[in-house]
C-alpha cells in the first residue's frame, strides 16, 4: 500500500493522521479507496466530474500528476502520494 500524506485541512477526515496507507494501482483507484476508508474526503479533493479540483495538487513520488498522467498516473506500494492545497505558504 502507498503512503498518502494528508494536508492539515483534511486531517479532520483521517482522525488527525498526517499519513495513511491506501491501496490502489493508480491515483484514481487510490482516491476511491481513500474515500472508502475516510468518507467525505474525496469531495474535497475532486470535483463532481471526478477531476482533481483546480486548487488541489496531487504528487506521486514528488511529481505533480498534472505533469504525469493525471488520475491514470501509476502508483507503486513504495510511493509516497501527497495531497497539497495549491496555495503557496500564504500571507
Amino acid at each position: 500500500m502507498a503512503t498518502v500524506r494528508i494536508p492539515t485541512p483534511l486531517r479532520k477526515f483521517t482522525q488527525g493522521k498526517e499519513e495513511v496507507s491506501v491501496a490502489g494501482g493508480n491515483v484514481r483507484d487510490l482516491l476511491a479507496n481513500l474515500e472508502t476508508a475516510y468518507p467525505g474526503i474525496k469531495e474535497r479533493i475532486c470535483d463532481d466530474a471526478g477531476a482533481v479540483r483546480r486548487f488541489v495538487n496531487v504528487f506521486v513520488a514528488d511529481e505533480d500528476i498534472r505533469f504525469l498522467e493525471n488520475l491514470d498516473t501509476a502508483v507503486k506500494d513504495s510511493d509516497e502520494v501527497s495531497i497539497v492545497p495549491a496555495i503557496a505558504g500564504g500571507r
Binding site: P7, T8, P9, L10, K12, R44, I45, R53, R54, F55, V56, P85, A86, I87, A88, G90, R91
Partner: peptide
C-alpha cells in the same frame, strides 16, 4: 467556505 481552499492570502477562521 472550507478549510481546504485555494484562495491564497485568505483565512478560513473556524479552522
Amino acid at each position: 467556505d472550507d478549510a481546504m481552499h485555494g484562495l491564497e492570502g485568505l483565512k478560513h477562521i473556524p479552522s
